[in-house]
Design a protein around this nucleic acid. Sequence first.
DNA 1: CCTATCTCCTGTAGGC
DNA 2: TGCCTACAGGAGATAG
Length: 259
Amino acid sequence: MPELPEVETVRRVLEERLKGRKLTSYEIGRPTFYRPPPRAQLDALIGATIVAVGRRGKYLILSFSVGRELIMHLGMSGRIILGGKGPHTRFQFTVEGEVVTFNDARRFGRVGCELPEFGPEPLSAEFDARYLFMALRKRKAPIKAMLMDQAVVAGLGNIYATEALFAAGIRPGKAAGGLTLAQCEKLVSVIKTVIALGVELGGSTLDDSAYLDPLGRPGGFQKQVAVYGRKTGACGHSLKATRQMIAGRTSMYCPVCQK
DNA sequence: CCTATCTCCTGTAGGC
DNA sequence: TGCCTACAGGAGATAG
């Protein structure tokens, strides 16, 4: 569910609500997720002030006054809820009376994990045509798999990669190494546009409650989606039967507009 | 190193 | 209605 725009939206809410306040207690939910955060790590944060709420790719980073960080990843179904409790609470902490809940039905989310190696942020100056061209050269994997590879560029998932490829007129299954510098230029440009729009609209909420921000508010990007999950593209062409599995994910594309 | 495949889990939509 | 299957915003592990 959560890709860069959704995580960034969550980050902004948490920054506004939690920054400058102290973590006073925590609780690990009963059915532990993948790897529950070690208690020693969490104990060291009690009484510490949250000095910053950051983001790298799809990871959230709470920085504490004691020089430590608490890193979280929402996985597919993770949600952070302020002042509430969900049916799948994995982890919870209190910041001077404010309850912060990590809710995650599918349990692919993580708390207290480490940051992996990342490619550049899509909205940074470092992510440009030259960089992408060099990163993709000699790669035979589908371009869409490369865009979702966090080591190539950090933050894109199925929705935004799908939308960007449509906007660039490139089929998701095209071999990444076959892209020209000009195509990389176009692709970088539309990725920045799509991601920036996603952030501006507060992410995408495709189903009723799949993604909601920490205050329960839905995003607005789903109204701008051109191909993802649609039967007819924004271009007016039928997308029926133009689904293809790439890197284990269904990929939609327009057979007319994308080459 | 690179690529493709499998896997972790639960909820829900859609077909019969 | 009710059951069964397929698939879902991610990404780490692993085999070739």
